[in-house]
Computed example of a mutant assay.
Amino acid sequence: MSSAARRIGIAALGVALGALAGCGPAPAPPPMAMMAPAVAGHPAATTFTELPGAPQDPDPGAETDGVVLRVAEDLAVHDAPAGEVFSTLPATQLDNPTWVPVIDQRGDWAQVMLPSRPNGSVGWIRASGLQAARSPYVVDVDVDARRMVVRRDGAPIGEWVVGVGGPASPTPRGRTYIMASIEETVTTFSPIILPLGTHSETFNSYGGGPGTVALHGWPDPAVFGQDSSDGCVRVPADAMELLTTLPLGTVVLLR
């Protein structure tokens, strides 16, 4: 079992996690020769870190055009195009390759979502030299209605009743993304778990980890349509089968 899997402590799971399963968007044109260098001395943007100086998502309810970037080497993250560096985006997240969604672009600079606290953290990275791809999917979770719709190029391809966080530990709202895919080898409640780039706003830590929120299955269908989780979104098995085929970096709207 990887050390990252042992440490993550995803909200609503409370179990050890097994080996990590990699996935990613479809191949894109090869990257350019050079990548912007990382800057030493700045905290890494991961699910385990807090970035108090990070800008906040300017439109947390909006969809994107689906463009995602592969960060293959540690990369400096700026607070504005050509602005101050406040973090470094590493090449992997939970042993998965780092793919981040683009929410804005200005010339060579791309504003991307980050997986760190506080929720809604974003930053600017140089896009030149990065592999780009497009995820045509959006996962739209209506927390109050407890329904999830997956759309491809705007058209629904599946809709399900799901379970969400309870009143004492609600599912966080806002725009996030599928950060990683983890194969569960310890328990059987969800063969694959999809950690998101967002966290519980109730638990600063959970199970020894940072309280990362995830999409995952559940063996008892009675939880679907209920607000009984510790913040994660519990989905039926057929929904999970579809979700596990989506590219890393796919946008998830929790609204």
Rank of each mutant, 00 (worst) to 15 (best):
V186Y: 14
A44G: 05
F48N: 12
V77T: 01
A44N: 10
L242C: 12
Y206N: 05
A40H: 07
T188P: 10
F189T: 14
P156R: 06
T244S: 13
N96V: 04
V85Y: 04
T92S: 08
Y206G: 03
G197M: 01
T185V: 15
P118F: 07
A38I: 02
P52M: 03
Y137I: 01
A38Y: 00
T64G: 03
T92D: 11
H78R: 14
V67Y: 10
R255N: 09
S2F: 07
P115T: 05
S190Q: 13
D104E: 14
R234I: 09
L246M: 10
D95S: 14
D220G: 05
A19W: 13
P170C: 10
L243W: 08
V141C: 13
P115K: 02
S87C: 00
P97H: 05
A110D: 09
E201N: 09
A36W: 03
E184M: 14
P247Y: 00
V39I: 15
A72D: 11
N119C: 05
R106W: 11
P210M: 02
A44D: 10
T250F: 00
V223Q: 02
W99V: 00
S116G: 03
G83C: 07
T46H: 00
G123A: 02
D230C: 08
T198K: 04
I8G: 06
P191A: 13
P37F: 00
V252K: 01
L215T: 02
Y137S: 05
L246P: 09
S3P: 15
S121T: 09
G14W: 11
A72H: 00
L242R: 14
A127H: 04
A12I: 09
A40P: 06
R7K: 11
V102E: 15
A19Q: 15
G209K: 06
I157C: 06
T245N: 06
I178M: 13
L94Q: 11
P195A: 10
F189G: 09
A45T: 00
I192Y: 12
V39Q: 15
L89M: 04
V164I: 15
P221K: 13
S2E: 12
D104P: 05
Q111D: 08
T245G: 09
Q93F: 02
V141P: 03
D220Y: 08
P31M: 09
A237P: 07
R7T: 08
T250P: 05
G225F: 07
R7M: 09
S169W: 10
H199Q: 00
H199K: 06
M179D: 10
G166H: 10
H78S: 05
A222Q: 13
S205H: 12
A36T: 01
F189Y: 13
V143E: 05
M240A: 15
D104F: 01
R175D: 02
P60N: 02
L89C: 01
V139E: 04
L69E: 05
P101S: 00
G120E: 07
E184D: 15
G9P: 11
P29T: 11
A145V: 06
E73H: 11
V252S: 03
V122A: 07
P172Q: 03
V252P: 01
A5S: 15
V85I: 14
M179A: 12
